[in-house]
Design a protein around this nucleic acid. Structure first.
Lengths: 245, 245
DNA sequence: ACTATTCTCGTACGTGGTACGGAATTAGGG
DNA sequence: CCCTAATTCCGTACCACGTACGAGAATAGT
């Protein structure tokens, strides 16, 4: 099914990966499917974290032998890319565009955030590996580009903005998740608080001491996300900027 | 030296990690040092990538037995945190503050970018693990907070801004590095171009087709970074925003 | 029926992190 | 000056992981 060869040197030819749905005419029928395997891997990652996604555990989830997975994905890295594109399908259909590109862009970011909160392994997965533009990812990218149509940005700049927004969402959600996991362990939170208090008391970090002593009105992650997003998008104005054509 | 116990449940007490320089009064003298081990790990990562940093290879670089490393760091995760703080030392002393907080913030981001380009594993390392605020990281954070002093932001918001800027730099540099590695392999670049051309030709992705067909004046990473940074920072204005105290 | 093709998966190898425990080294107390 | 407790050094070993290999099973065209 994958007909895995390719020109070596790390990575899979995207055409082989995404554009090969034709069943071969001879040979044994597949007992599983790429979608089922990917879904099992996603379920595992959602439930137990990305480190729980091992070839052995995925295989046992779908009832296959370990090595059978390699008929559907040439290696684990590819399986992770399949997972990313799989969950990106949840972004379709997106909210219809309003024509107000700032509002549309913000809606896109909020949708991405919601997706990442549903799949907490996603920010890390997105950050680490090279983007693999599967059909679902492409569909959402197309949507984002359409949202930017009222803009004076050229093609490359639009792609940059999309990358920027996605990265922004990934970072904020990663912080949010880390914070939540952290607060969930009172021991560790207390240890960190003690450490920061000790640092603040050493006299060499007056700004930090002041920042930590602030009343700290309760910041909900939602409000923080919305506020920073607003600031970012409202700055993403104008056309190509100083350097001319 | 590390006296590694701690209250279990994943992670090391920061006080144990960073605030324990007192030599014990009894026992064999250490043959190595945490700094030497960390430096060796950094050198390895710089030269051969983060995957080359294994306990075995680090040990052989410093001339130690593998298990001896565990006298200096309780586990590999901690060693990675030590690496991050180690290279953060290169950010000191920072450029003096000018009082123009926007300019100062941009200088901070540029310094971070330069650091990340020198240590290409750094963006990924920063993104994945929970922040561990070692002395060098704290010193730079202190500097960033001082830069934000002229601002009306409260303590929590200043910390958010620092996180945002750091995350921005990490993302852009990660893209930059990936792009470079990608272009270095003509086969893979050609394969990707062929794939995108095929997608653009399928008629379902008109916006993408247009974005790709644009003349695409050559974008240098430097210009892209500076431009997006300007947009971001110039939007990070004003005080706490809509939600009042 | 034969054959080419494709999928299945048990076995096995190499690599990684690190637990264990004994030997070596040091400082303080008798 | 030995004895004891503390600390570091590190060889051995275990387990988990990704995946190469190849033999056997199933399928479709001839």
């Amino acid at each position: 099914m994958v007909r895995g060869d390719g020109p070596g040197a790390g990575g899979v030819d995207p055409q082989q990966l995404w554009l090969n749905s034709d069943r071969p005419r001879k040979g044994r029928k597949p007992a599983f499917s790429r979608a089922a395997i990917t879904a099992a891997a996603v379920a595992l990652a959602d439930a137990e974290g990305i480190d729980a996604v091992t070839m052995r555990r995925v295989a046992s989830q779908v009832g296959a032998g370990v090595m059978s997975l390699y008929s559907y994905a040439p290696d684990k890295e590819t399986l992770l890319q399949l997972m990313v594109d799989h969950v990106s399908g949840e972004l379709s259909p997106p909210e219809p565009l309003t024509g107000d590109w700032r509002a549309d862009l913000k809606a896109i970011a909020h949708a991405q955030r919601a997706l990442m909160l549903r799949h907490p392994w996603l920010p890390t997965a997105l950050f680490n590996r090279r983007w693999s533009l599967g059909p679902n990812t492409l569909a959402f990218l197309e949507h984002a580009l359409a949202a930017l149509r009222p803009t004076a940005l050229d093609g490359g700049a639009k792609l940059e903005v999309f990358s920027l927004i996605t990265g922004f969402a990934a970072r904020l959600v990663a912080d949010e998740i880390a914070q939540a996991a952290f607060s969930a362990s009172p021991e560790r939170a207390a240890a960190e608080a003690r450490y920061l208090a000790a640092v603040a008391a050493d006299g060499h970090h007056p700004e930090l001491a002041e920042a930590l002593s602030a009343p700290a009105r309760p910041l909900t992650p939602d409000a923080t996300f919305a506020r920073l997003l607003d600031r970012m998008v409202d700055g993403l104005d104008a056309d190509s900027g100083p350097e001319g054509p």
